[in-house]
């Protein structure tokens, strides 16, 4: 195997990352929910330091606590132990410095596509004229190809369209941190591909200063987009199982990177981390045959 000079070694990547200022610190975070059967610990003792401009993917099995961790960073859920620090300030509540795409889109059903985005822009971006606000909305509608649908209500949209509205809304408020909870989950492969490009464009536009945390179930997507991939254990009391560093050089080309041996190694490692559970079930099936 010939070493590709563009591929950075893990140590080199770590070094580069450490040059940047800290964006998000997750310190000893435990989140539990009161339930009728007592306290349910969703995630436990999570420690994670994310640097400015990093793209981080969170991967883990359904129900392990990915959304819970995202809500904790956004300030919507209070950790029962530990703290989250964003841009040097302890998180005590939600704020427009963190744009969020909710897993269930969370559009307001009585507002049109346009209004859903406009109301967010209107409350998050002060000191600009209404005209400028409108042009921000138009631009982001264009970005997600929803301009022809801007006057529709959420109930008139497909799942993928709703998701794109949610993405446009989160991007439009121009936050320094983007929290994306399965933002491309309901999209077809083609749209997904173009949304990946849009996401990276946006990130490049801002000199790669935006920190992005994204939950995904799609390993290829995670490798293509991320600097690091955080794999969570299964819940309850999920912890960080492994952090994979993706040393692939940017800009990445989807077609080219899949042939790189480094890509295959990371993919293999992630699959092993995530899929061991299924192989046991497969054996069970074979046993029955």
């Amino acid at each position: 195997m010939i070493a590709n000079p563009n591929i950075l070694s893990e140590d080199k990547v770590k070094e580069n990352i450490l040059l940047r200022p800290v964006s998000i610190e997750i310190k000893d975070v435990t989140v539990s929910f009161p339930t009728p059967k007592g306290e349910y610990i969703a995630v436990k003792d999570i420690n994670l330091e994310i640097r400015k401009g990093e793209i981080i993917s969170l991967i883990g099995h359904s129900g392990c606590g990915k959304s819970t961790l995202m809500s904790t960073i956004s300030g919507m859920v209070k950790p029962s132990k530990g703290e989250v620090i964003v841009n040097g300030k302890k998180v005590t509540g939600a704020g427009p410095d963190r744009g969020i795409v909710f897993q269930n889109y969370s559009l307001l059903p009585w507002l049109t596509v346009y209004q859903n985005i406009y109301e967010a822009v209107d409350s998050c971006i002060k000191n600009i004229s209404a005209d400028e606000k409108h042009s921000i909305v138009e631009r982001h509608l264009e970005m997600v190809n929803l301009t022809p649908h801007k006057d529709k209500l959420p109930k008139q949209l497909s799942g993928g369209m709703k998701q794109r509205v949610a993405i446009a809304r989160a991007f439009a408020i121009n936050p320094s941190v983007l929290l994306l909870d399965e933002p491309f989950g309901a999209l077809d492969a083609l749209t997904k591909g173009s949304m990946h490009v849009e996401l990276l464009k946006l990130w490049n536009l801002d000199n790669r200063n935006k920190t992005i945390i994204m939950v995904t179930h799609d390993i290829e997507e995670a490798i293509f987009l991320s600097d690091r991939i955080v794999v969570l254990n299964n819940g309850p009391a999920a912890t960080v199982k492994e952090i994979e560093i993706v040393g692939l050089p940017r800009p990445r080309n989807k077609k080219d990177i899949v042939n790189l041996p480094e890509y295959k190694t990371i993919r293999e490692r992630l699959l092993n981390l995530l899929v061991e559970k299924f192989s046991i079930e497969d054996e069970g099936v074979k046993f029955e045959e």
Partner: peptide, 21 residues
């Protein structure tokens, strides 16, 4: 809660919360 979360996440003022949510 979803609707309240939207208002929180995007920093709706009380007035906006009352009129839009």
């Amino acid at each position: 809660q979803d609707h309240k979360n939207v208002a929180k996440a995007f920093g709706f003022s009380t007035f906006k919360y009352i009129t839009k949510v």
